[in-house]
Each structure stands twice: as C-alpha cells, then as structure tokens.
Design a protein around this nucleic acid. Sequence first.
DNA 1: ACTATAGCGGAGGGGTGCCTCCGGTACCAA
DNA 2: TTGGTACCGGAGGCACCCCTCCGCTATAGT
Lengths: 190, 190
Amino acid sequence: MVSENRPALRVDVRRPQRADARRNFDALLGAARDAFAAKGVSASLEDIARQAGVGIGTLYRNFPTRQDLLNAVYFGEIEELCIAAEEAASLPPWEALTAWLQRFVGYAATKRAIWESLNRETDSFQAAREAMYAAGTPLFVRAQEAGEARADVSFDDLLRMVSGLTAAGYVDQAQRDRVLAIALNGVRAH
Amino acid sequence: MVSENRPALRVDVRRPQRADARRNFDALLGAARDAFAAKGVSASLEDIARQAGVGIGTLYRNFPTRQDLLNAVYFGEIEELCIAAEEAASLPPWEALTAWLQRFVGYAATKRAIWESLNRETDSFQAAREAMYAAGTPLFVRAQEAGEARADVSFDDLLRMVSGLTAAGYVDQAQRDRVLAIALNGVRAH
DNA sequence: ACTATAGCGGAGGGGTGCCTCCGGTACCAA
DNA sequence: TTGGTACCGGAGGCACCCCTCCGCTATAGT
C-alpha cells in the first residue's frame, strides 16, 4: 500500500519506443552510472557512449545536456532508495535503519559525484531529496522512539555523516564497514 | 626536542634564489592550495598561474608537472599537521586528540583533492603518510591508554573516518562540527 | 516482402587546457 | 652604472572533449 502512494518522481526524459532504441537507452544509463561513480561528474560523455557501445549522437538524442544524463542516473538511484526504505520497514527498528543506511552507502557514491554540479538547488533536485527524506525519516524516528537512537541527533545530520563516510577512500570493503559501524555507534543511545 | 627529530619531508622542488622568483614561487603555492581545495585536482593550471599573477611559463619552471605542484601543496600541509601534533601534546589525552583532528579537518579538504590523483602509492607519498601517522598515533594511543578512546579502533580507521566526514557537504560550519562530534562519540570509551 | 520513418553514429567545427620554447625583462654583484 | 644571467611570460602547437548535423540503417506495421 505504501508503494502506490509514493509520488512518481518522473523525469522529463522518456524511454524510447523502439526495441533497439530502448536497449541503447538502458546501456547508456548503465555506462553513465559507472562512469560518474568512477570518475566524478567530469567523466567524458564520449567515453560513456563508447562504453555503452553507441555513437555520441545517440547519447545526445536521449540526453540533450550533461545535466539530463546526470538527472536520469540520480533520480533512478533515489527511486531505488525509496523502495529499499519500504522493504526495510518490516525489520526491528535499529536493524531497519542500518539496513537502509547500508543501501544508502551504495547510492552515496553516485550522489557525491552528482552533488558537485547540482549543489545549486534545482527544484527537481529539491523534490528528489524530499522524496528520499520522506522515505528514510520514519525509519529513524522509529529507532528513536524505540530508544535505540539518540534523540538529539537529526536525520539530516545522520545522512550527511553516512554520505561523507561513504565517499572516503578505504583499504578494503571491510574497513569501510568497520568505520561506518564506529560512527553509527555514536548515534546509538546507550 | 621532538621537532629536531622529525624527518625533514623535503620535496625535490626547491625554492628559487632570486627575490622576485621566490615571491612568484610562494604566490603559486598559495594559489594552487586554494584552487585544488575549491575545484579539486582538475583545477586549471592556467587559472592558477593567472590567480598567482604570473605567466604559465613560470608555473612550469617551478613545477614541471602537475604532480610536482600537487606534491608541493600536499607536503606543505602534512608538515603543518606534524607540527600541530607536537603542539597538541601538552593537552589532556582526549582534548589533545580532538584538537589535532580539528586541525586535520582543515587539511583533509586539500588531501581529498590530492588523493584523487595520488591513490597509486608513490614512495614519496608513502613517506609523507608515514610522517603524519607517526605524528598522530601517539595522541591516539595516549587517549586509549587513558581509557578515553575505544581500544578496538585503529588509528587508520579513525583518520579515514574524519577524512570522509570532512569532505562531505554541510549546510553550515555548525553542522559539520555536530556531525564530527557524533562520529567521535562512537570512538569514545563509555 | 515492402516501405515509411524512428533511430543511428561519426565527421567536423569550436572551445579549452596542457606544455614548450624563446625573445625580452629585471635582479644582483662588482 | 653596467653587464651577465636568472628568470619572466605568453604565443602557439597539440590533444581532448563538447555538441551539431545529416546521410545511412534497422525496425515495425501492413
């Protein structure tokens, strides 16, 4: 029932009609996601097109500006994040929160890259952020009401903390999880 | 007595002899520090030269490659950080650690930018990192031995955590301090 | 099978940054 | 003051990326 009420978060980019065109569209989105995560916002669009196995012209037909491509990747991630929040709702309070934050970690790598060019608040970006906050806040409030999370910490503080931790460089995956656990320990009510 | 023993951390770049040349050298370093912090590693070298009020040729004479300039800025920051550690040594254990980490926050903004291009381990970079760790570890160990910091956390974990938190985007300075405090609370022994 | 057309892709012009090179400038020593 | 020279600085060649344009291709409907 929740998923039906979730606002659609539609972008003005629409998926093409023909089968081959849809394949290219999806390949471009995938390549863009990888490239932005790996090289930041300044990733070469020609590289992305090459990686997707299409011509540069095809990229520009689907995404007229760099910002359009960035938006498409970004909104896709946000949408998945909202769905993850719904799925986590069935877990116990603290586990639900940390499970969702784990998913956020995967998203934050992309977000960081996009933030670089999106920090002036576009209204579409604003809407996406609100959708994400709407999805995550209940999890956090529930953990607070259960006495598991500190009451004097805001959800915004928490998200920015996790977002920052994710963007840092680590020796391996294990260290990242360890560091995240240390920081989350600071959020826990004792 | 500590400062006499600290290894010199010299870079192969040397300050020119003539007075006007030294002025230019210093102006370039300052402009580079600002530019790398503001725009990341990909800041335009021509912008840096312009900002420093010198020609592009002068930049290249002092720093033949982009990496040389990056190194010069980086090693300068590291050196200051080592000095800050010595100064902090006179404070009580936990205060000394957090004071130094506060200083690290200022340095991390630069470091993040440099990390992007320096993640393959140059030996000179390795040396700088070791110098920094040598400076900070005693502060951390002292806090652990005083029972103020968790014994099951490593100094490397701590530094990467703070480094990541620093690089994140915040609404204002107050939020950054708040978030840092939350995360450090996770390091504290209760 | 056939055709109308949605969709493809890369050549190419414009822009920007990197780095070299060398004629000119200004410092410093005598 | 004057000469020797360390140093300056920007013009210019190169490489890369952005984005447009248009002749060609593959698809989907009949």
